[in-house]
Amino acid sequence: MPDWSPTAYLRYTDERSRPFAELLARVPGRPATVVDLGCGPGHLTGRLRARWPDADVLGIDASPAMIERASADNTDPHVRYEIADLRDLARGRASVAGADLVLSNAALQWVPDHRRYLAPLAAAAAQTFAFQVPGNHDAPSHTLLREVAARAPYADVVGAVPRRATADPAEYLDLLAAPGWAVDAWETTYTHVLDGPDPVLRWIAATGAQPTLQALAAHDAAHGTALHAAFEAEYGAALRDAYPERSCGTPLAFRRVFVVATRVG
């Protein structure tokens, strides 16, 4: 998959940060070592250090651009960043074993068949494994993305856009519940009020739609076409119908699923 844009991702920092704060609020204890899986541009590391100021933090992300941005902004000697694939960590090829807290915020949904990696990642944590994933794979923002991308002429360039479905809290509970573990699983639907022109398009263009948009932009550069602009216009119009602007702004309902698994006994 093409690399991410830290600048685009950080456009809605406050809204994207709220689930991270809710996740941290449910993590017990005082971990001395923390591994942040899918740390992105490192903008939330400060919250980890504020919650546990004595902890050493390792941020891991598969995106070179994200790690470059996080490393450039880092001035904390107790924080470091590395490029790695979550699947390799779960398979033991790059070890995070022994960290008191292993957590992941809005990253596991990008890992194909992510459910199979949850138990190995939990096993790597000495105390707690915690994660949050979007649960809005069937929201209009995503169904319209798949629908528009399946039309000509885009489909021949981008192929089928995958439905990156995450599980419900009960399924995650079943996957991680085991002797010696206490699992807290829940969900929250946020209603973000976004401002400006085409705010839902700008929101999803930085995350869920980015692979599609980058594929179209690459095709345009190679073949002299204008598919990227045409797709944005068509998809943006559909999003405006699905998410109409109100006097307060444009509401965007966004469901998130949370899990905190802690060793007990």
Rank of each mutant, 00 (worst) to 15 (best):
V161R: 03
A122D: 10
G135T: 01
A124D: 13
A139N: 08
V111F: 03
L173H: 12
A182L: 06
Q109V: 01
R164H: 10
A160Y: 04
A155H: 15
L145S: 01
L176S: 01
R146S: 14
P112F: 01
S104D: 08
A152G: 12
L108F: 10
T128H: 02
V158S: 04
A119Y: 02
A177T: 10
Q132E: 14
A160E: 07
V111E: 08
V148M: 10
D138G: 09
G159C: 10
G159A: 12
R146C: 07
L118V: 07
P162G: 06
N105A: 06
A165L: 01
D156T: 10
V158A: 07
V161P: 00
A123K: 00
E171V: 06
H114E: 09
A155I: 12
A124R: 09
T166A: 10
G135P: 04
S104K: 02
R146Y: 13
V183C: 08
W110F: 08
A139K: 10
V111G: 03
L121G: 04
F131W: 08
A125F: 04
W181S: 01
W181F: 02
T166K: 11
A119D: 15
P140N: 07
Q132C: 15
A122L: 11
L118S: 00
N105Y: 04
S141H: 05
A107I: 00
V148K: 00
A126S: 15
A177R: 10
H142G: 01
A119F: 03
V157K: 03
R151T: 13
V158G: 10
P134Q: 09
A139S: 11
A130S: 11
L118K: 05
P169V: 03
A149M: 09
V111P: 00
V102H: 01
V133S: 15
T143E: 11
L176N: 02
R116L: 14
A170W: 03
G135W: 14
D168T: 14
A123N: 06
P169K: 03
A149T: 08
V148C: 11
E147F: 11
S141V: 09
L103Y: 07
A182R: 15
D138T: 08
F131Q: 06
T128K: 00
